[in-house]
Each structure stands twice: as structure tokens, then as C-alpha cells.
């Protein structure tokens, strides 16, 4: 009986050892699995970081190589302190085009939706008086300014036509405008200005 009892004890101890060793095995297995998963995730992260590093370096080189072009973009916007110079430029353009010009209003509007916007809008209302060809030439000059500018509204009206453009006689003859005849222009111009 004593031998049988000892064998049982040995069996119980063996079973305990088996359970213990397989617990250790399982623990090792799950730890390695977890570590491998972590390595995989970290490797992907490292790969992404390396790619980001390369793209950042390329971006820096590109920004440096295109510095002049980027500065050139700025020249298409009115400088923050360039309003006075711009108005004087407009008056000079008017003289060049042969129209008399007066600036009726000047306002600066910031984009209310985007407070961090780099730009704001300079809005000018310009009144011109001159012949049709000079007024047309002035409008063409305004539209071809090397700035981000556009004409939003404009009213061009003929003043001083004593004959009210009436056709006289049966034939279509070309009409000669009278000396006092002028075209009055009211032009609303917007220009994008750097803040």
C-alpha cells in the first residue's frame, strides 16, 4: 500500500510539473507573440517616420530651390503697406490712359470666416471721365495689372451727348462724337493684399 501511495504522490507531482512547464511555455509563447506584434507595429511606424523624414528633406530642398518663385508669388499681392503706392499707381495709370480719375472710396475687408487668412481685400471705387477709347484702355490696363485684382462692378455711361445718339436721315452714317461728350466710369476694383 505504501508503494502504491508513493507512486500516486509521484504522479501528482509529475502532473503538477507538467502543468507548470506548459504554463511557462504558454507564457513564453504569448509574450513572444506580443513582442513580435509590437515589433511589427513599431517597424511600420519606423518605416512611416523614415518616409516622412525623406519627404520633409525633399520639401525643404524644394522650398529652398524655389525660394525666388515663392517670393515672386508674393509680388502678385499688394504689400501690407502698399495701399498708398497702389492708389498713386492707379492715378498714374489714369493719366497714361488719358482719363481723369478720382478714387471715391477705399476700404480693406478681412475674411470673417478665416481669421488666420494671409490676405485681405482692398476695395476701391474709382470714378473716371474720358473718351470711350481712353476709358476702355484704362479698364484694360486695370485688368492686366500684375496683381491679384479684379473688377467686381462697373458702370460706364455716356454724358454730354447733345443729340442723344439719335439717327438722322435714312442712311447709316458714322457719328462723330461732340467735344463735350465723355464717358463716365464708376469702377469697383478689388485687390488682394497681404496682411
Amino acid at each position: 500500500m505504501k508503494n502504491i501511495s508513493n507512486t500516486s504522490k509521484i504522479l501528482i507531482a509529475s502532473i503538477f510539473l507538467v502543468i507548470l512547464v506548459y504554463c511557462i511555455y504558454g507564457l513564453l509563447f504569448w509574450t513572444i507573440k506580443g513582442e513580435n506584434e509590437k515589433v511589427s507595429i513599431l517597424s511600420n511606424e519606423a518605416k512611416i517616420d523614415l518616409q516622412k523624414d525623406e519627404s520633409l528633406r525633399a520639401t525643404k530642398v524644394s522650398l529652398s530651390n524655389n525660394k525666388d518663385s515663392i517670393e515672386n508669388i508674393d509680388s502678385h499681392f499688394l504689400a501690407p503697406d502698399g495701399v498708398v503706392g497702389f492708389i498713386e499707381g492707379l492715378e498714374s495709370l489714369g493719366r497714361e490712359a488719358g482719363v481723369s480719375i478720382s478714387v471715391a472710396s477705399v476700404t480693406v475687408e478681412a475674411d470673417s470666416k478665416n481669421k488666420n487668412d494671409f490676405k485681405e481685400t482692398l476695395r476701391l471705387r474709382v470714378i473716371t471721365t474720358g473718351s470711350w477709347s481712353n476709358t476702355y484702355y484704362f479698364i484694360s490696363l486695370l485688368e492686366n495689372l500684375p496683381l491679384s485684382a479684379e473688377i467686381k462692378n462697373a458702370t460706364l455711361s455716356l454724358t454730354g451727348a447733345s443729340d442723344k445718339l439719335a439717327f438722322t436721315g435714312a442712311s447709316v452714317s458714322s457719328r462723330k462724337p461732340a467735344a463735350e461728350e465723355k464717358w463716365k466710369g464708376e469702377i469697383e476694383l478689388t485687390v488682394r493684399k497681404l496682411k
Partner: peptide
């Protein structure tokens, strides 16, 4: 046969 005396423009 047409003579123009005014333009009003809104963009």
C-alpha cells in the same frame, strides 16, 4: 444701326 450709351456690369 445701334449706338450704345451705357454699360452696367456686375461680376
Amino acid at each position: 444701326s445701334i449706338r450704345l450709351n451705357g454699360f452696367k456690369y456686375n461680376r
